[in-house]
Design a binder for these strands. Structure first.
Lengths: 136, 136
DNA sequence: TACTAAGGAATAATTATTATCCTTTAGTAA
DNA sequence: TTACTAAAGGATAATAATTATTCCTTAGTA
């Protein structure tokens, strides 16, 4: 993926820090501010937490990334992808993407409301294969 | 609704403050800590914000209420109801419940993953009838 | 009625996020 | 290239949200 181009397409200045943050986000899939900061520090030891927040907000504003908020968890961030749902494992607390038919859901909802629907956020909770075996 | 019984069923001590908080939550449908505090203050002028947080956490812990978290909004709380989705109006920022077929969604997701699914959280964003007319 | 564990009030402490100030740098155009 | 300007970065202060602590009060129970 060409991160430099991706930033330009979203009208964001290209800086080494920003490229690093974006690249880490892509690699991680879903990552918290805390973890992202720990990782970006390894590349830019003097980077400030405020810089990270400023970048996250800039990228959110341009919809380059999305915020995922679920109960009892710190917010996580992911690079924007086609509509999909999230599976959240209650054991290891990891997210996994799943491409269910989001449009069908939106269609069904449309029929039951007068809302003009624009976007959706779907989180399913359960146990992943690994955590299923271990405990429960 | 018998709030006293509801609290007892969830192994929570019955106190006047707690009854007040629960009753306000039911009436509001979906409410933030801030709004809840403003309202409960009218009934118990000396109530502390810490007390409110402790009650919210106690009720969350016993699944008497649920937390709703979505990007760019303060968390809201609702008394636990049968599985349903939320419609969030981007104009007035109000939630509305909608009873779409959540089980069908979970079934579909089950087929596409090895997860053992337990719970789901679905938020659809758009404009309600009123806000559709006004702007957009 | 009395006892005990939990709840409430007040407030301090912690955590997460944003604002501010000043320095540095990316983007642009001469 | 060079020079200019707006935006970005770093350091840190400030704010907001939530949790912890202390002590006093009350609900549940024997």
């Amino acid at each position: 993926m060409n991160y430099e181009l991706l930033l330009r397409e979203h009208h964001l200045k290209v800086t080494p820090q920003r490229l690093g943050i974006l690249s880490l986000m892509v690699d991680a899939g879903h990552i918290s501010v805390e973890d992202l900061f720990a990782q970006i520090k390894q590349e830019f030891s003097s980077i400030s937490l405020a810089t990270l927040y400023k970048n996250i907000n800039a990228m959110l504003h341009n919809a380059l990334i999305k915020e995922i908020k679920v109960p009892h968890m710190k917010p996580k961030y992911e690079v924007t992808k086609p509509p999909h749902a999230h599976l959240l494992c209650q054991g290891c607390n990891e997210f996994m993407d799943i491409d269910i038919n989001v449009n069908a859901l939106v269609d069904e909802a449309s029929k039951k409301s007068h809302y003009q629907l624009l976007d959706s956020s779907i989180v399913l909770c359960g146990y992943c294969e690994k955590c299923q075996k271990q405990s429960v």
